[in-house]
Design a protein around this nucleic acid. Sequence first.
DNA 1: ACGCCGCGTGATAGCGATTTCACAGACGCG
DNA 2: CGCGTCTGTGAAATCGCTATCACGCGGCGT
Lengths: 367, 367
Amino acid sequence: MTGHDGGMTGTGLVEDDGGAGAAAAVPTPARPASISDVARAAGVSVPTVSRVLTGAARVSPERRQRVLDAIEALRYRPSATARALVSGRRDQVAVMTSETAVHGYSTTIKGVETAARAAGHPVVISVVESRDPEEIDRAVQVALQLPLAGIVVLKFDAVGVAVLDALPADVPVVAVSGEADGRHPQVVLDEESGAAELVRYLLDLGHRTVHHVAVPPSRAEDGRTTGWRRVLEAAGAEVPPVRLADSFGARSGIAIGRELGADPGVTAVFCGNDEVAMGVIRGLEEAGRRVPEDVSVVGFDDHPLAEVWRPGLTTVHQDFEALGERAFGLLAAQLAGDRRPTLSSALPWLVRRGSAAPPPAAGQSRR
Amino acid sequence: MTGHDGGMTGTGLVEDDGGAGAAAAVPTPARPASISDVARAAGVSVPTVSRVLTGAARVSPERRQRVLDAIEALRYRPSATARALVSGRRDQVAVMTSETAVHGYSTTIKGVETAARAAGHPVVISVVESRDPEEIDRAVQVALQLPLAGIVVLKFDAVGVAVLDALPADVPVVAVSGEADGRHPQVVLDEESGAAELVRYLLDLGHRTVHHVAVPPSRAEDGRTTGWRRVLEAAGAEVPPVRLADSFGARSGIAIGRELGADPGVTAVFCGNDEVAMGVIRGLEEAGRRVPEDVSVVGFDDHPLAEVWRPGLTTVHQDFEALGERAFGLLAAQLAGDRRPTLSSALPWLVRRGSAAPPPAAGQSRR
DNA sequence: ACGCCGCGTGATAGCGATTTCACAGACGCG
DNA sequence: CGCGTCTGTGAAATCGCTATCACGCGGCGT
């Protein structure tokens, strides 16, 4: 354990090792030191070591030092497992999600992780790929066996909703995004306001109406779509049918962009997220329309590449990282005893870049 | 006792299965059922329940069924904690990384998670933000307290290298990417070949040389840079100084793109990753150069947005998800007893899209 | 002086599983 | 019919740690 003892794996070369039985010598008798080893080495009782570890009670300075020295010497590391078992205090935070590599998801997870780490909580990530009840059940089962302090469920989509339903009531849970039912503490970004602001901006630019490409929602109609519809209705503008992208990826926007490009009546498109917006722009250009000269396209989220995109993508910034941090904050509050379901909402903000402009015939009659 | 007492005396002594009625009795102490509760309910001993659970030994069909029923009725779920403590078998897989939201990282993590989940291993994610020895030590300490089966370290950058050094020798570890020292089982993507292919492609297109914008490397010079240099030298082409982007993000490429755009001698740029390439393209266009007419730009990784970008980004596809899956595979092999450090390498492949073309004055004088 | 308090400490009891280990009873075989 | 094997089962030990108790001991109020 002391390292540098010319061990077996010394020089990198793979020793032929033909018969796997050659190196018979059991190389790891070294069970890591346990609390009793420390107690013995320090000449104190086991509970005393524990007291030094947890600070639960006072220990005389002299003994405490002996214990600390022994810990150091033995490279002792308390077992979170044993600790969790006896004290009933579990510290892991599980994030249940259907996606890990998509911007909004990964960034939110990052936020949860950052906040959790700062508070000393390891984060385990549980991916549930589909709404298949069996898969959800399996995932929940696995999660519940873990030494969990609580669970953060990403409810950006329908899978999250189903997971929330499958979770027992006695484990601390925080929902992230989605419809605000009062069933759990929840953090959201006010997508409806963000979308409204965006659509209003487009209308102010002179567009008669705004088309909408939605991403897979977590409920009948998500906040972005509602905000869009609300503003259009309030303005007395026509409300075109919603087009639904079949994923959060850019690819799904391309075909839609081509179709939209074929309709000369389309001058402004509001997409459910930036990736889809990029796909739509691509499709639009393939159809011969220029952005923003012929049609304005706006996204949602403010993806890191949105500002680099040409033209810069006008969008609404959603602070996913802060969202994740707030989610953990709510979990921590619950753990600290606050049992009331809380709703924490934050406002996204409009980011104007180059992809939106007045419609072609700028001074047209507004009817 | 389960003697099927036919009579069923009304609301007999239903222990607690379903007693949805006014069951005024014990208000069900929140503690979840433990194995002894199950044993009692099934009328067998604790070890017997354990045997049913683990399948470690045979149990008579009749008892086994009773146990199964009790488990069902009590909604019993074995505690992974207690299990890990006594058996010494830990099943969590930790992924130690410096980043979670960057394409290559998040996709690799996704691969690890997918494979681990399929094998029944929960994945905990440990982020180490810097090379600060203290932070690394803290992260390692935390990780080692977890009930870990093993650790996957993402060595895409220098932090990963430092983490690998700080890890004790007695925990199963797999390194992902980076320099192939023989110290741990390791999975890599052959970046050098990928880069070589890309640069050769550019040279074949007629470019006299290729400029290079590197991303933060994990060692003195990473495979992409080496491959680039190697091909240039072999072709007797000039080897321009390497420019180093200060992050993996597109933003860092913009300024570099502008500078590059100011130098009329630049006709081809190979970027360390796609995001930086996108930034460089943006910067180049701001400087008045067109891509690919004036200068060709290629990236690396095949980011999901690379194909949507305009022009489509010519790049090298790296299968990060498979990389992560292979990493878990190596870990599983170690867990199964294979102790030899293994190196698993895979080849990335060239993806030709629109961002690379022959240089402007194709048949220009060499002067 | 007496007794009570608070303090540091070590015994002792678990936490919720898995692992011996010992032991009946069924079985096989000379 | 006697004796050695299996088989299924439960009792007891164990994992590494924290919680609870009891105890010896100075200090202090009355």
